[in-house]
Design a protein around this nucleic acid. Structure first.
Lengths: 222, 222
DNA sequence: ACCTGAACACCGTTCAAGT
DNA sequence: ACCTGAACACCGTTCAAGT
């Protein structure tokens, strides 16, 4: 079983890419049992490595979680951009699709969302990459709001207020669903995307209140 | 210093009302250092009691947290009702005030909000009192939505959808502010209540889209 | 350069024992 | 009935030592 160490830089001692292996193991554990239950020693065990070796790659547990949160924000931003791209260019439709993508993300990865928005990370300012990634996600929404306003179909309103309103809307919906807060009578056989469409449409109707706004018959799919 | 045990049921051994003393100590610690940092042993120490004695009053740590979350929901519901009562009966104004109260609550007690909505409690169904309290808070919103719809000033729309939209809106805004996600350029000298008014007003304009809806000049106080 | 074992100071939880 | 001390199995983190 003696393995040639050769072929230049193949598995230095044990792993070769322990850092990513740890991240992936952590992500799996979080998806399965929640972020709160995660222990660094458990992640090390799952990766087949001694617990002390995690400190060679992350200064502490919080740093590992911040890295996972950052990846989450990048995935989220990417999902929003992809959703917008499929809407043929109508800014309001793009904004709606982006919001639905946000809710989708949260519903399919509730535990990841907790890492991104919960209090596991005491001070986000310690992690510039995390701050940048979350800002990047926010800016997908904000730039769409800007586009909507340029069409003149939106109420005159501070761009910041409108973007925040949109963000708060989808964020709140995603978290309510992800944390199981939606009253059970309605959570039964719910299609979360349809719910998202309906809810977000209401806000959209608040944005586009102008004279040329369409009557906006909401697609009632519930 | 030998104290008469008399006067019927005065401090049985040590405390007399250890349960509430523990809850209050926990609440203080949470407000100061966040729910994540809380340890049961620390709470016992602060109360001047051995750590094992907490188990005489709560079966485990999660149960204590669930109790705190439940209290939070009751306080929240009360704050919302109080805010609505000061609005002289106009349903839309009451709904707006209620939303602002929700955001207020979250901004002034961000750590408490984490206990209520975070993942510290693995399965909320284990705590019927918690479920009931959160439902009670939700129903304050829902009944106001019903009132708005009765005035005929709202779009015809499922009551549930509108109530969820309203809830998601204020919930999202509260959490974004409480978790420090509002971009720093704007978080500077912000009046959160004013921001809440502006954001919620946008949604309200989506709700009241009817012919007799006022032009709704949003109070721009920013 | 990367990994390990032993050690430290903490946890949550249990339990036999005290008053 | 209510509280305690000792114990158990875990943590996160550090550090000297190994390859």
């Amino acid at each position: 079983m003696t393995m040639k160490t050769g072929t230049r830089a193949r598995r230095a001692y044990h792993h070769g890419d322990l850092k990513n292996a740890l991240l992936n193991a952590a992500l799996e554990k979080i998806a399965a049992h929640g972020a709160r239950a995660l222990s660094l020693r458990e992640v090390a065990r799952a990766t087949g490595v001694s617990h002390a070796s995690t400190y060679r790659h992350f200064p502490n547990k919080e740093h590992l979680l911040a890295t996972i949160a950052e990846q989450g924000f990048r995935t989220l931003a990417e999902a929003m951009r992809a959703a917008a791209k499929q809407c043929g260019g109508d800014p309001l439709a793009m904004l709606l699709a982006t919001g639905v993508a946000y809710v989708d993300f949260g519903v399919s990865r509730p535990q990841h969302l907790q890492v991104m928005f919960g209090d596991l990370i005491a001070n986000r300012d310690h992690y510039p990459g995390l701050v940048a990634a979350s800002r990047e996600a926010y800016e997908v929404l904000e730039s769409l709001v800007r586009k909507v306003q340029k069409t003149g179909r939106a109420r005159v309103q501070s761009e910041r207020i409108v973007a925040l309103a949109a963000w708060a809307q989808v964020h709140g919906l995603a978290l309510l669903i992800a944390s199981g807060q939606i009253p059970s009578e309605s959570a039964d056989r719910i299609d979360h995307r349809a719910l998202a469409v309906s809810v977000i449409s209401l806000l959209r109707d608040g944005l586009s209140g102008g004279s040329d706004a369409r009557p906006t018959r909401i697609r009632q799919r519930l």
